[in-house]
Nucleic acid binder design. Structure first.
Lengths: 202, 202
DNA sequence: ACCATTCTGTAGCAGTCGCTATGGAAAGGA
DNA sequence: TCCTTTCCATAGCGACTGCTACAGAATGGT
């Protein structure tokens, strides 16, 4: 069914732009350290408009996370999909993360990894933890399939390799926030890939 | 010079025990998510006693961090010192961290790694960042010395290996807080060590 | 024109934050 | 005993937290 025609006074601000501004703040400071006053100022609106458009703070954060994953997380699926092997895909994922985590002009690191740390709201923590766990499960599934197909050697432990990948990503995110630069993170990423078992060279 | 005899009414609580209680709270919730009310309740004292004995919240945290490093961080130096090679030392450091990060009955992960994330106080963030950076520098120095002595092969990149070690520790800390168990972290730690260049077997 | 609907700005709610002024209680020294 | 010193408990400071009641402004429908 089509969207009914809007009634009443139209919204006077750009909802998507406001959400973007909120996302940047959450990304930079984390969920709890970002106050409603911070948000309304960055979004250019007053508190009642924020609550009318986005619900409470947690709903706004959920929407920001969803938008973040769509806009700034797409490179993950792309890296895994566009490379010919899982190993090459994860190598590229780590390499691209070094770039994504240190892009100038926006917060460093990954919102999903950092924004919920030390957060008082169990729901927010759990929301982000579930996303992270989903990534680990995705990695594991892909690696296990590669082992099953003979692409990766049989002694491979898909679960451990998936967790190692996630751990390296988490470490890279925190280090990028600590000021470590792109070049050093790329070296780190390349080094981490040496943990994979040697490929049978035919 | 000897400590002058105490004058006036003696303190009615155990300062060290109170500091321990504060450390546990900071460790579990992080700096900012731990309120003075939380602290006074856990320490069993009132706010004025806390301020008289420890100064402000940041001073208390600094003292908690120092105590944490002394009590719960000693295993790091021990692992590096007691193993015959740097490689074995870092392997044991990672392995022992899997245990330390998941010990039942106390907070998971590492206070130095997590308690300052998303913290509004730049001083607290910087305090912990400097400790982390010091660890990386220590790792790098040890690895570089091992390369110089021929213990590790010349193609080794000490800086990158040091950063990788730190990244894996950070990832292990966050994952332990996400509920990942000791056994899985030990596998992760062992896998990470495969990133080291192969040893010249003579 | 008038109404229903929806948005916006002002102003402020109750609660918590880190922190402290104040007065009484508990100790040692004279 | 009296004084000094130090600690403790009550109570509360101003600022901030997430959030909202209310009234006015702006739109479309009739």
């Amino acid at each position: 069914m089509p969207t009914p025609p809007p009634r009443g006074r139209p919204r006077s601000f750009d909802r998507a732009a406001a959400l973007d501004a909120a996302t940047m703040l959450f990304w930079e400071r984390g969920y709890e350290a970002t106050s409603i006053a911070d948000l309304t100022e960055a979004m250019g609106i007053r508190a009642p408009s924020l609550y009318a458009a986005f619900g409470d703070k947690r709903s706004l954060f959920e929407e920001a996370v969803a938008g973040f994953r769509h806009t700034h997380g797409a490179y993950v699926a792309r890296a895994l999909a566009e490379e010919p092997t899982v190993r090459a895909g994860i190598a590229r994922l780590l390499r691209d993360s070094a770039t994504e985590f240190t892009t100038p002009g926006r917060p460093h690191g990954c919102l999903v990894i950092s924004a919920g740390v030390n957060c008082g709201s169990p729901q927010v923590r759990e929301q982000l933890r579930a996303i992270r766990e989903g990534s680990v499960a995705d990695f594991e599934r892909l690696i296990a399939a590669a082992v099953a197909s003979g692409e990766e050697p049989p002694e491979t432990d898909p679960g451990t390799l998936a967790r190692l990948t996630a751990a390296v990503l988490q470490g890279m995110s925190q280090q990028s926030r600590d000021g470590v630069g792109r070049a050093e993170l790329e070296l780190l990423a390349a080094a981490a890939m040496r943990a994979w078992p040697p490929l049978r060279s035919e």
